[in-house]
Design a protein around this nucleic acid. Structure first.
Lengths: 207, 207
DNA sequence: TGGTGTGAAATACTTCACAGCA
DNA sequence: TGCTGTGAAGTATTTCACACCA
């Protein structure tokens, strides 16, 4: 099945299933039915079965899904079986929190390069990573050292940083600055913004 | 128009429009067309017009939308014209980053109570806020001091914290722990998880 | 004229319901 | 028997295209 025939929403849910399956594995369960998984992630079982069916047949009728192989299949679909190298730009509050974050997804994501434009920080080591000058972004990234950029700089600098990352060859970006950035169809950008989430929340909190 | 007739997706986009409109206002523009706004947020103009139309008529034919009034209307729809008080649970990396975050949305969100279960931290002040013992969550929240909880604790503690918050009367939660929590239909929970976003990103990064 | 507001058409997604297999 | 996998039916969302009006 071609990638552009898979519903966006299905892809968005795969990481949620995966997160849950990893916990199930830790608890020692070796199989799980769509019903059980559905309960754990608060979705309908049919949705889970349909989602998985876009990628193949993963289960056994009458039994359910074997947890470990299913995890591996989903990891493969999401390309989490590869090593991804990241560049972090901005070592303020958010940036430092990310640096001290224990390895994401069994170390499949690794922060390889760190940048900031504060002369006080450039050259120093933070959580064991040397901070480079932001003006070096394109140069260093260009060497193919990283594929993903994380933007954790103030709003006004976010777009410029994004452009430098892309100039350096990055094709995926996570942006923590609360500004919409859209550069090129080949570059996928995901936004993480607590203000946005809080606003969605408060909409629902007044009847 | 009744709240349950408004598409979920429309509500999800309002905060994005708002974020963009605030920037436009700063740049000194006083009106904007759906076409211009669409470009800035990378969506179709028809979608923006339709989204706004669920809540009333905001524009002037042949001209567009007045930025300032539109901002106020959207703020009202999202209930950002109220004062929201938050409880932050967990003062690790993420928690501290949030504490030093400058006021969200013109101060409409205020962190009122801070909790942690580390004896080293309890009683201390962090960014000017006294850290309370997590065992006090329900008691303190119950006094009606806060409406929203932010969970920034390790995975295994997240569910328990969520239950305490809800027991204390909180009806909205932002959860930074990478675990699905679903307690009660009256309690809305939004998840913020960089691993999930990274996985969605890497899915799209391999052709 | 130029851009909104909006029914109606087109797409996208979810749920149903059940055949089919372990 | 019990649970998956899946077409077909049902909803939800997006886009179209144009009437309408400042």
């Amino acid at each position: 099945m071609r990638k552009d025939e898979i519903p966006k929403e299905t892809v968005n849910r795969l990481p949620i299933y995966l997160r849950c399956l990893n916990r199930i594995l830790l608890r020692g369960h070796s199989t799980i039915s769509s019903d059980e998984l559905a309960n754990l992630v608060s979705m309908s079982p049919a949705k889970i079965r349909k989602d998985l069916s876009y990628f193949g047949k993963f289960g056994t009728r009458g039994v359910g899904y074997e947890v470990k192989p299913l995890i591996e299949r989903i990891r493969g679909i999401l390309n989490l079986d590869k090593n991804w190298k990241l560049a972090l730009v901005g070592v303020g509050n958010v940036g430092s929190a990310l640096l001290s974050h224990p390895g994401f997804h069994r170390g499949c994501f690794k922060i390889e390069l760190v940048f900031d434009d504060d002369p006080e920080l450039i050259g120093k080591e933070i959580s064991g990573k040397k901070v480079h000058d932001s003006s070096e972004i394109s140069n260093l990234v260009e060497k193919g050292l990283v594929q993903i950029g994380i933007i954790a700089v103030p709003n006004e600098k976010a777009r410029d940083v994004a452009e430098r990352l892309v100039r350096g060859g990055v094709t995926g970006i996570i942006n923590f600055a609360p500004v919409s950035i859209d550069l090129h169809d080949d570059v996928k950008i995901y936004q993480i913004d607590i203000s946005t989430e809080l606003s969605r929340l408060t909409y629902h909190m007044v009847p």
